[in-house]
Design a protein around this nucleic acid. Structure first.
Lengths: 340, 340
DNA sequence: TTTAATTACGAAATCGTTTTCGTACTCTTC
DNA sequence: GAAGAGTACGAAAACGATTTCGTAATTAAA
């Protein structure tokens, strides 16, 4: 009795294995009476089909993978929440892989997933734009995947992103109208789509308002915690007059806050800052942080929906439509950190 | 050429399937020369074994599950980070399941995992103490699992927790010494081990310092966001004199901050607060929040290590030792929110 | 020289499902 | 009443790996 399986179940019922299997799948070949008997005994003996046998035979795993740069990050955990809400509904399982912002790690993970362990993948890329080989291998293998937030625009795959350019423009415009004279853009790297779009919006706004290029600073802080701390601190000493910072990610804004506390820079008096962020404490910070907030949960949901749609359509002739490219809106919250 | 498998690989090599399989597993039965040939062609043709066939035959999945109450929570995402660091090293895969604090959901998830999809489970329980049936089914099925943070102490399973009692005592003592007169404990529910231990420490400290019971308030705010907001707000109106709040979880402390902002209660002047928290912004809040910080990453690591140890020892005779029960230390950070 | 051990491989069973195909049997229909 | 359609089930092949067992060929031991 150690482990229940369909063979024992069939024997117990005096039926063949195939009949039992069909009954469990509610096949039209099996009459109602038999189905009931099978279902009843299956429940009583607590029979649960072996997922691997099933996956092996059906060539589908009821599992998706989520590949993200980091998890201890409000944005990504909210996205996972959204993904899980859909996956749970569709009885899919969710595998998590973390790249720690290392492109090679991402490649390795994706390559590993070529073995069919998952039916589809949701990716927020940490890859550089010049390395698409692993994505193309996915396409070749017919494994559906969807980018969210950070996409690789050279790859032919659905994307769920936010209006990064517009948001970047809007944030920068806000800084300009808050009487900033110098402007800094805090970035992790110049290889990430979402961040670059934010930067483009930033530059476009500065251009439109005819800000002198000498007053524009792009600070690539990188993904290393201690290093980025130093880079930001160095860039604040000496402090440019009326500096307005647009931080492309929450982490760098938090670091900036710490640095300002450390070297006694007053926000918003000496320095104004607005940041992309999903911090639940943004309004409680000292001073309250102005933010651009992405609809993280919805991003997860939309990306998952798109993925499942692609999984379902796999093999079928794809309608020659444009590539799904969902763009959601971010919300701007003006708070004290950018007050005049 | 669609999908590479061991059969095609064997044919290509003019070897039998079994020889190839053994070569790939570096069996002593196969001579070095053959192994090299096999490995070389496997790499060249990008052969990756089908994980389901492998799992089916070996009866092991190289996968663990993490079952948590919620994910958009600094503590849990840091724990997952720790878990992933170990899993990644051991080439295990990590499935995430979220219970949303619903005990029935947890049961359902655990029961589902009885089908052998995972080799082991890490659980932070959202269950009530009077419902252990699903854990016992895991034990019966021989599926190893480890509790972390929130354990069910009636169940015979390894645990990784923190020194919640001591930390609770210490935090409360700090509030007492900060000249508070009234004391409130903010709790999610009275069914969670970790939280109850914190409460016990709280009560013990108040008792030791002979605080009048009428000055002691236990506020069970529950897990529903809007409801808990109301409960906390109501309990602050009217505001007891010199109230010191010990919040057992970060979320409730944040809510308290929001409420205080809304109804104009000054922290720490009118109300002092200390909270369990892994907020990276605790020091940046207005005012900076005194915290008890759990070593979340280490909790994840330790729990994973314990689990993998149990997975490895499965089937072997268990040494009659005491149940592994790792207890890690939290760190107290005194900040402005409890300043005299 | 004979026997035993070792080396290096292959055939086939196995894991637990799903699915295809075959087949009795009953029921229509003209 | 013969042919066709429909019903309800079972046998067996498949999915792709791992593993047991068997066995030639070679080497070592007696």
């Amino acid at each position: 009795m150690e482990n229940m399986n369909i063979k024992k179940l069939a024997k117990e019922l005096n039926l063949s294995v195939s009949t039992v299997s069909k009954a469990l799948h509610d096949s039209y070949e099996i009459k109602a009476e038999t189905k009931e008997k099978v279902l009843a005994l299956a429940k009583q003996l607590n029979y649960q089909p072996n997922p691997f046998a099933s996956s092996l035979r059906r060539n589908s795993s009821k599992t998706i993978a989520v590949v993200i740069p980091e998890i201890a990050h409000n944005f990504f955990s909210l996205v996972i929440n959204g993904i899980e809400s859909i996956a749970e509904e569709l009885k899919y399982h969710v595998l998590i892989y973390i790249t720690h912002e290392i492109p090679e790690k991402e490649e390795q993970i994706i390559r590993h997933l070529l073995n069919g362990r998952v039916d589809g993948i949701l990716i927020s890329s940490s890859g550089t734009s010049n390395n698409n080989a692993h994505y193309h291998e996915l396409i070749q293998k017919g494994i559906p995947f969807v980018f969210f937030d950070r996409a690789n625009f050279d790859v032919d795959a659905p994307r769920v992103t936010t209006d990064d350019y517009q948001a970047g423009f809007q944030a920068t415009e806000h800084l300009i109208k808050s009487q900033c004279k110098h402007f800094a853009f805090l970035s992790l790297s110049n290889q990430m789509s979402a961040i670059n779009h934010r930067k483009d919006g930033f530059l476009a706004a500065l251009n439109q308002y005819q800000i002198k290029p000498s007053h524009v600073h792009i600070i690539e802080a990188g993904t290393d915690e201690t290093l980025s701390f130093q880079i930001i601190r160095d860039s604040l000493q000496p402090l440019p007059e009326s500096l307005g910072i647009f931080s492309s990610v929450e982490k760098l804004a938090i670091q900036t806050y710490h640095i300002c506390k450390e070297i006694n820079i007053r926000i918003p008096k000496q320095l104004k800052i607005i940041s992309f962020s999903n911090l639940p404490t943004a309004a409680l910070l000292n001073p309250a942080l102005s933010t651009l907030t992405q609809p993280a949960f919805s991003i997860g949901k939309e990306a998952a929906l798109l993925l499942f749609q692609n999984i379902k359509n796999k093999g079928k002739i794809q309608p020659i439509t444009t590539l799904p490219n969902v763009v959601l809106k971010s919300t701007i919250f003006i708070r004290e950190s950018t007050k005049i």
